[in-house]
């Protein structure tokens, strides 16, 4: 089988398009690269959506945590503590078990509501269930970053806003939020990278890979198990993730430049890549 044929068969295998059966013997390098690359679709999907939705929740939680009112501050603090203080691995297991139990409860309470039972069924699938967990998790980690940035907004900036008569929503939109974002951006870039790395946990905990549609590490693990040779598939995963990381750094770097465009070159905060972190 030629490599072009392999790519046509397996390039979208992870989302169910193309050949159904995975290769079982005589694994070629082309097959491994194609299938693992196909699994990357899931990593990118989870990472992008969780990051996009998580951003808004994170800003809300950070504002809640910085709020003088106990009633807003305490729930926000607990949310951040629970999701940052426990392993993502356990969160996945817990969420999956909870989602599996849901339909039974749902049917008991809402007899006859077809829509609700259908929705709870989707929760046990990785594409929705794991996404929710990743969304809440990244929201908690980002909220802590944004909270730190909120607290380090220069006092003078806020005082200047007051002097100009900016209050409430206007002050937040024009002064607090952009400054917070600018201060938090380097740390937030790291968080985004870690989140993409964390997406590899999805199919190793709780959520089963339906019809062997898994992510990059799932396929790499499949190949390593079948060939007893870890020296080919895992470096392929590593290569893909290094590429993904480089893309992310470039993308976030462009945005960082935009956030800092009013500052002289020497004062700009550089993006610094830190070693990655398990959660």
């Amino acid at each position: 089988m030629s490599c072009a044929q392999t790519i046509a068969d397996y390039a979208f295998r992870s989302i169910g398009i193309g050949e159904r059966l995975l290769p079982r013997s005589d694994f070629t390098l082309c097959q491994q690269i194609t299938l693992i690359g196909s699994g990357m679709i899931w990593n990118v999907y989870f990472g992008l959506l969780a990051l996009a939705f998580g951003f808004f929740l994170a800003v809300a939680v950070a504002l809640g945590k910085a709020h003088p009112s106990r009633w807003l501050r305490k729930p926000a603090e607990w949310f951040v503590f629970v999701f940052r203080g426990s392993p993502l691995f356990i969160q996945f297991f817990l969420a999956y078990e909870a989602f599996v139990l849901l339909p039974k409860i749902g049917v008991d309470i809402n007899l006859g509501f077809v829509e609700i039972t259908a929705e709870t069924r989707w929760l046990t699938r990785a594409w929705l269930g794991a996404l929710i967990v990743l969304f809440l998790n990244t929201a908690a980690y980002s909220a802590e970053i944004f909270y730190g940035a909120l607290r380090s907004i220069p006092k003078g900036d806020i005082e200047a806003a007051d002097a100009y008569g900016l209050t409430g929503w206007t002050r937040f939109r024009r002064i607090t939020f952009p400054t917070m974002l600018r201060l938090a951006w380097p740390a937030y870039t790291n968080e985004a990278i870690f989140l993409f790395h964390a997406t590899t946990l999805v199919f190793f905990s709780g959520f089963p890979a339906w019809q062997q549609r898994g992510d990059a590490l799932y396929y790499a693990n499949y190949f390593a198990d079948k060939t007893f040779n870890p020296f080919v598939p895992y470096p392929i995963v590593a290569g893909y993730f290094i590429l993904l990381t480089l893309c992310l750094i470039t993308l976030f770097g462009v945005f960082n430049k935009r956030l800092n465009r009013h500052l002289p070159e020497a004062h700009r905060r550089r993006l610094r890549l830190r070693p990655n972190i398990i959660r």
């Binding site: 990278i193 790395h197 964390a198 590899t200 946990l201 190793f204 590490l217 790499a220 693990n221 390593a224 007893f228 870890p230 020296f231 895992y234 995963v237 590593a238 993730f241 290094i242 990381t245 480089l246 890549l273 070693p275 990655n276 398990i278």
Partner: peptide, 17 residues
């Protein structure tokens, strides 16, 4: 070596390797 690559990949890799 640990930058840029998910650690769980290292965990799976090192044990067999």
């Amino acid at each position: 070596i640990v930058r840029g690559v998910p650690d769980i990949a290292f965990f799976l890799f090192f044990v067999i390797a």
